[in-house]
Amino acid sequence: MDDLSEVSDAQLVTLVARYSEVALAEIYRRHGGAVFGLASRVLSNTSEAEDVVQEVFLRLWNSPERFDPSRGNLRSYLLTQSHARAVDTIRSLNAKRRREINDAHAVARAGYDLQHEAWDLVMSEEVSRALATLPDDERRAIELAYFEGHTYVQVAAILNEPEGTIKGRIRNGMRRMRGELARRGVQGADR
C-alpha cells in the first residue's frame, strides 16, 4: 500500500503493528508537528523537544498496542504522551534550567498576545479562544499546570492559594473548556 494519505489513523496504527515504516512515517507526517509543537511549548528548548518527539514515536513503533482507539483519537494519545514526557523532563531539570523555561514562557505568551501567531492550526485558534473565555483564575491555574509543568500543589504555592482551591479551579476550568470546545465544534483530530 503506497498511498496512505486516505487511510485512517487507527488503520495506520494497525499497519505499524505489522512493522510498516511507511505507516509510521505517515503518522509522523500528520501529527509530528503537533507533537513537536507541544513539547517545544512546554520545554522551550528545541533539542529537548526533539528528544521527546523521538521517544513518543519510538514508543508507538515498539508498543502500538498501547493505543486504544476506543479511548480516544491518535492525536490525543500522542499529545498526551508528548506532554507527559515533556513534564517529566522539566521536573528532572535543575532550578536554573527551570527558571530559563519559565522566562521563555513569559516571552512566548507576550509574543502570542502581540502577534497572534503562536497557534497555527484552525482548531488551535478555536481552542485558544475557548481558553480565553475561562475566568482568569481558572485559566491561570490550568496554564501553570499544563504549559509550565507544575503540579497542582506547586500551582497553589505559586498563586498563594489553598490546594483545594486550585484543584477546584482546574476541575471547573477543564469542565468549562469541555463545554466551550463542544460548543465551538472542536473535535478530535482522528480520521
Binding site: L79, H83, Y146
Partner: peptide, 18 residues
Amino acid sequence: DTLREVASAMGTTYRDPP
C-alpha cells in the same frame, strides 16, 4: 479519557519539526 481529550486540544499547537 474525556479530560485528556480536552487537555490535548489545549495543547494542539503546530511547529515544523527539524
